[in-house]
Simulated scan of single mutants.
Amino acid sequence: MPTTPSPALPDDRLAAGAARLAARYAGNFGPETVLGLLADSYRQLAAHARIRTHLVVLSERLAAERLDALAHTQGLTAGGRTRVLFVCSHNAGRSQMAAALLALRAGDRVTVSSAGTHPAEEVAPLILQALTEAGAEPADAYPKPLTEEVVRAADIVITMGCGDACPLLAGKQYLDWPVADPDQAPIAVVREIRDAIDAYITTLLTRLPS
């Protein structure tokens, strides 16, 4: 019986990451699933990347996040943490700040993700500065596309200015935080937006399981 060929990797440098992911998710997903998500993650990130220096590394990270989400929705991992997904247009400002602040405030109570309906090339430098000032660690933040696996795995989806672009799925709790867009804003305004988001985070934490 002929076998189905494995998906081709769009960059040969992804092979090492594919091997790591295949070993990490052995028993849950076959190599074809791993390769398919890794290749798709690369293509989606490459579509809006201006500088591709870290594209291979980021593709592996995105694929791992998607595989974790897929494993969760398929009941392959133990439950427990509430999964919160923040979505904005570019995943370079509001949703990045919200994700970093919730991770800082909630610790291991939650699994936090963020994504953009039209991801930017990079997180805005003033966003990183404002988060660092607040004690968050955003050094590894990067804009990510909104993928079906991550949406389906989320318990709470919080939109921040992306309108109707975020898909609505049954069984999810949806919130909308009407926060100003920090794009091109001076640092003083970015700090104000950060603090407004932090106030929403404080309220959200009172509603999450301890």
Rank of each mutant, 00 (worst) to 15 (best):
G116C: 01
A99E: 03
P182Y: 00
V123G: 09
A170K: 08
G161T: 01
L67P: 02
S113V: 10
L175Y: 06
R94K: 10
V150K: 07
A134Y: 09
P145V: 05
T132H: 13
G135A: 08
P119Q: 03
C162Y: 03
L67W: 00
G75L: 02
G171Y: 10
S59W: 08
K144C: 11
A106Y: 09
D108H: 08
D140L: 15
A154D: 07
A153W: 02
A139D: 09
A153G: 04
V57R: 15
L168C: 10
A170T: 08
V150C: 04
A130L: 09
L131Q: 07
T73I: 12
S89G: 15
L168T: 14
L169D: 11
A100I: 07
A153E: 02
D68I: 10
G163W: 01
H118Y: 12
E148R: 07
R94F: 05
V56W: 12
A106H: 10
L76P: 04
A141C: 03
L70H: 11
C162N: 03
R83I: 07
D68S: 13
A139V: 01
A120R: 00
D183K: 15
A141P: 05
D176P: 13
L126V: 05
Q96D: 00
T147Y: 09
R66W: 07
A69E: 04
E133V: 08
E137Q: 10
R94G: 04
T82G: 07
K172M: 04
C166H: 01
Q129K: 14
R105L: 14
L169A: 12
R61D: 13
E133I: 08
R94W: 05
A64M: 12
A165R: 15
G161M: 05
D183W: 15
A115D: 03
L67Y: 01
V157Y: 05
G107D: 12
R61V: 14
D140K: 14
Q74I: 06
A141Y: 05
P167W: 03
S89L: 12
A124V: 11
A63G: 06
D176C: 11
A92T: 00
T111Q: 12
A69C: 03
